[in-house]
């Protein structure tokens, strides 16, 4: 009986996972096929299975479309996972790397780095972004816990908003002093995916691997943290250590996303909520599914951003904010 149940659960689990992976493959191919020049899906698969350097479509796919699709995939997964981890650890349905100031910390560091060192700063982008995100995260967390009543959703979001406002003021000051900076970074600052930043992905790889390893290691313990610190201690979890590891993972993932595509709001908020509807509250499942669904979601959003007002592209970050902000308002209305 027990075996039958387990088998059934495994079957459900694997069909869910397969569904997500299927969706990713479908959106990935669609993402590559649509654009200024429409490429039939058959050609897309051809380009992978039998690459031919003489076929123009294949060159377009490998040089232009594929890098962008990969970046969308990675960024979506990073942001969704860091949102899920933050929601678990802060026990706050409204946690998101953007709302809690990490995105603006990372982009602040990038803008400042760009201001002082110009484009030579590129290889150090992930490192700079991590430093910025780490400082912003610690600041927000410190303010929220020092406030009377502790880190409630309201204090967390208010301190996130305050830190964001502060950094945004300095960013716009820097951009006013340096018009080149504004010209080069204004699109990036709204969160935009472009294949031309593919080299950044190489520099991000060590960070991505490190953060993913930490994430896989802590995901199970986050479930017990989500039930409260006392429960976690009772279950034998080293709370301080796990929190520190989660902070590192979140900072690493967020800063890779920012280095690749700029600050992209609300993905980390929306996806874990959607995922929890389907897989429950066990973070050992929420985290991987968030990665899958986040990747699929950002691929889809990027398709919309490119197609909605074609031939003009909308910044993908603007679309995620336009979709995510109403969701946030709805969460506030429904859950608080």
């Amino acid at each position: 009986m027990a075996t039958a149940n387990t088998n059934l659960r495994l079957a459900g689990e694997s069909s869910r996972a397969l569904m997500c992976i299927g969706a990713i493959i479908f959106f990935f191919a669609l993402h590559i096929s649509v654009g200024a020049k429409h490429i039939p899906l058959a050609n897309v698969f051809d380009a992978f299975l039998s690459y031919d350097a003489k076929v123009f479509d294949h060159i377009v796919i490998w040089d232009l479309r594929l890098p962008r699709a990969i970046i969308a995939l990675v960024v979506g997964a990073c942001l969704a996972v860091s949102g899920a981890l933050m929601q678990g650890v802060t026990r706050n349905a409204l946690a998101d790397p953007g709302l809690l100031g990490l995105l603006s910390g990372a982009s602040f560091a990038v803008v400042i780095g760009y201001y002082f060192f110009g484009s030579t700063v590129m290889p150090f982008l992930p490192m700079l972004a991590s430093a910025g995100a780490l400082v912003a995260a610690c600041l927000v967390w410190w303010i929220a816990t020092a406030a009377p009543g502790g880190a409630r959703p309201l204090t967390l979001i208010l301190s996130g908003a305050a830190v964001t406002a502060f950094l945004a003021a300095i960013i716009s000051g820097v951009q006013l002093l340096d018009q080149d900076n504004f010209q080069n970074l204004r699109v990036w600052l709204t969160g935009s995916i472009s294949g031309s930043r593919f080299e950044v992905l190489y520099w991000c790889t060590p960070w991505l691997i490190g953060s993913s390893a930490i994430t896989l290691y802590v995901a199970r313990q986050v479930t017990s943290l989500a039930m409260g610190d006392e429960v976690a201690v009772g279950l034998g979890v080293n709370v301080a250590k796990i929190k520190m590891l989660v902070l590192l993972a979140v900072v690493g993932l967020t800063s890779c996303a920012v280095a690749l595509a700029g600050p992209m709001g609300f993905i980390g908020l929306v996806i874990p909520h959607v995922v929890r509807l389907f897989v429950g509250t066990d973070y050992a499942r929420v985290v991987p599914y968030s990665a899958l669904v986040g990747a699929a979601y950002l691929l889809l959003v990027d398709i919309v951003a490119r197609m909605a007002l074609a031939p003009v592209e909308i910044s993908t970050g603007l679309v995620t904010s336009l979709l995510g902000a109403p969701f946030f308002v709805w969460l506030v209305k429904a859950k608080l």
Binding site: G265, F266, S315, L318, G324, V332, K333, L336
Partner: peptide
């Protein structure tokens, strides 16, 4: 306040779209 934060994010996205 929280609704204000959410709506402000939504409107700012529209403003940045025009700026960009």
């Amino acid at each position: 306040i929280l609704t204000g934060v959410g709506v402000a994010a939504f409107i700012s996205a529209g403003t940045s779209a025009m700026l960009t």
